[in-house]
Amino acid sequence: MKSSRTAKDVLLVLFDGVQSLDVTGPAEVFAIAAHLVGEPGGYRVSTASLDGAPVRTSSGLTVVPDRTLAAAPVPHTLLVPGGPGTRASDPDLIAWLRGHAPRARRLVSVCTGALVLAEAGLLEGRRATTHWAFCDKLARDHPGVEVESDPIYVRDGHVATSAGVTAGIDLALALVEEDLGRDIALGVARQLVVFLRRPGNQSQFSAQLSAQTAQRAPLREVQQWITEHPAGDLSVEALAARARLSPRHFARAFQAETGTTPGRYVERVRVEHARRLLEDTADGVEEVSRTCGYGTPEAMRRAFVRTLGTAPADYRRRFRTTTS
């Protein structure tokens, strides 16, 4: 697939203690997009560190940068990943970002890379997010930043910040779609075997992440079964029978081990499934409600209002407006 577009330079900043997936996830997205488009119409992906020396990632892998930051050309997209190395940022890196990052057409952070951008003053007066475990720190240390702790990524003008690790892939896919179109982004997603797009306003806290994983195998299997069968009979009685427990014992054990009741867990799973169908398909609200196990569209509407503060039709309309 050829294109007459000019390739966009994507520069990923490296430092000791960087999270390897924060680097390789977005890098793979942009590199695959470049391959699908064909030169010179996609991206030129490169890496750089302050001194050009190899860096050791948080997992122990060693990554060799392409060049020093001083020798790097002004990129279209400058990406700062996260990792333990962001906890005590190198003052020379902060100084470089202050002087050079504003020249990039687009500024991106993954995970705790937002802490580095904030320290360099690049998020002042902007909306931003980071890994949920560090949102309070970002807000506390940088009161001029409007921190949004729930979304997996936030766009504010030419600055985009994302939540932890895999959210960097979601953000990179959104940027590819913006730059090169949905077909290219879909091709990248298929090669990586991921969703084309989890929208930025999707919560960092899925039902599976918000609830603890049960310790006992029968309860873990019930959690998995709920996720895979949202339209099934998910009453306490049916789930208890699947776990081979009495309904009363099951309800108590489920809450004790997961931190939530079976009913709240089921509602969260069904709402998440319905959100994905409203975002990614043209199915009507009535069809979505059946697919997700709601008896009626009104039951789904009540669940959406209770969980998201909006009705399904309004949610779909708002989603399409914000992603068009």
Rank of each mutant, 00 (worst) to 15 (best):
A88M: 10
R290S: 14
H35S: 14
R106C: 06
P151L: 06
R56D: 08
L93A: 10
E287I: 09
V194E: 07
G187L: 10
R67A: 09
S20W: 00
V108F: 03
L21M: 10
R127L: 01
F15L: 13
V194M: 01
C111Q: 06
F15M: 11
R126L: 13
L186K: 09
R275N: 13
G284I: 15
L277P: 12
R275M: 14
R290Y: 09
R105E: 14
A189R: 02
V159K: 06
V64A: 15
P73V: 06
S49Y: 00
T166D: 02
C135S: 04
T260E: 08
S109C: 02
L78V: 01
V45G: 13
L278S: 07
I94S: 11
T62M: 11
F250H: 01
E146C: 09
V110C: 02
K137D: 15
F15R: 11
S162D: 06
T166K: 07
V13H: 09
A160R: 12
S149F: 05
L209I: 14
V285P: 11
R268G: 09
D283H: 09
E146Q: 13
T161H: 03
Y265P: 10
A133D: 12
L50V: 06
R306A: 15
H273P: 10
T213C: 06
S59A: 11
D9N: 15
A253P: 14
P297I: 12
A256S: 07
E28Y: 05
E146R: 05
V271H: 09
Y153S: 15
L308P: 14
R242Y: 03
A231N: 13
T213M: 03
L180Y: 02
L186P: 12
A128L: 04
E39T: 11
A34Q: 05
A128Q: 05
S324Q: 13
E286Y: 05
E178K: 06
P230E: 03
L278W: 01
L186G: 15
R276P: 14
S46Y: 01
A27Y: 02
V271A: 00
G82F: 04
Y265I: 13
T68L: 07
S289K: 00
P312H: 06
G263I: 09
P297D: 12
D9P: 10
A303D: 08
A27N: 05
L175F: 00
A299D: 12
S162K: 01
R248I: 14
Q223P: 12
Q204C: 15
H131G: 15
G113I: 04
G113R: 03
V222H: 08
Q224P: 05
A70Y: 00
D150R: 00
V45H: 12
R197N: 05
T57K: 04
E237P: 07
Q255T: 13
R220D: 08
A133N: 13
